[in-house]
């Protein structure tokens, strides 16, 4: 059996009744002056599955509910045994303590932009003239499709779809940056830290670190203050501070 690491914390909060990957119970072990929440896995390599990702996240979420904010560990880190795990954690104790101090008393929220403003439907791109609506934010009325487009070949059609998808992505990213700056201007006093916008898998988002007591206020402010015309967004969380636990 190998030892799998979920999170590191500065207090002695016990993982009572917490279950991790593949139903294995989570336990705590002392790692220098820190405490690690760990579990047993069958061998040193851990295959990624959605179920295991959820299990890992659930352990970190459980760790967040009691005591001070833990430092969530990236999925998939296992060690030959507890002794090896403790050595690895102890070797990085100073850096981990710094990060724990940084996130102490805080949680991560993620502002996710799922749709940016529609691009002008008459906008022309250099290579592809398209009167179609852009991206997923508006439906395309087949009656409006230009005769010329109906005659285009599959290659051109494919490239036109790429162009539309790319512009939808760009619209989301632009909107996300607008949202990020608007939030900072409006409720900057609630934000302990934030990261730049990222785009992934069809959405754009930015994470913020806020005090636990400010979660509701931030969520209300994000939805009420921001320019909302044609921008769809959600505020996800609170989560353990994954985005603020990595190397600077």
């Amino acid at each position: 059996m190998a030892s799998y690491l979920y999170c590191v914390r500065s207090d002695a909060q016990q993982p009572e009744g917490v279950v991790g990957l593949d139903g294995a119970p989570v336990r705590s072990i002392d790692a220098g002056t820190l405490v690690a929440w760990v579990g047993d896995v069958a061998d040193g390599s851990v295959d990624v599955t959605v179920e295991r990702l959820r299990a890992h996240d659930a352990v970190c979420a459980a760790a967040l509910t009691h005591g001070d904010t833990p430092l969530p560990i990236r999925f998939g880190q296992s060690f030959a045994d507890d002794a090896a795990l403790v050595r690895a954690v102890a070797d990085r104790e100073h850096a981990l303590r710094e990060r724990l101090a940084r996130v102490s008393g805080c949680v991560e929220l993620r502002v996710v932009v799922t749709r940016g403003r529609d691009v002008d439907v008459n906008e022309q791109t250099p290579a592809f003239a398209t009167p179609d609506a852009i991206g997923s934010s508006a439906s395309v009325d087949s009656a409006d499709v230009d005769d010329e487009q109906q005659a285009e070949g599959p290659g051109t059609s494919f490239l036109r779809r790429l162009a539309r998808a790319g512009r939808a992505d760009l619209a989301r990213e632009v909107a996300c940056e607008e949202v990020r700056h608007s939030v900072r201007a409006a409720v900057g006093d609630l934000i302990i830290d934030q990261q730049r916008c990222e785009a992934m898998r069809g959405v754009a988002f930015f994470p913020v670190l806020v005090r636990r007591s400010d979660v509701d206020a931030f969520r209300a402010a994000a939805k009420n203050i921001l320019p909302s015309q044609q921008i769809d967004l959600s505020v996800l969380g609170p989560f353990a501070p994954y985005s603020f636990s990595t190397d600077a």
Partner: peptide
């Protein structure tokens, strides 16, 4: 937290947080 009805959004967020973020200590992963 927020009620998120969009399963793909929730999964994308889960993957980004748990698989792409978080502290790195050491080790190998398959």
């Amino acid at each position: 937290g927020d009620v998120v009805d969009n399963a793909p959004l929730e999964l994308a967020d889960l993957i980004n947080r748990v698989l792409d973020k978080g502290a790195v200590i050491a080790g190998s992963v398959t």
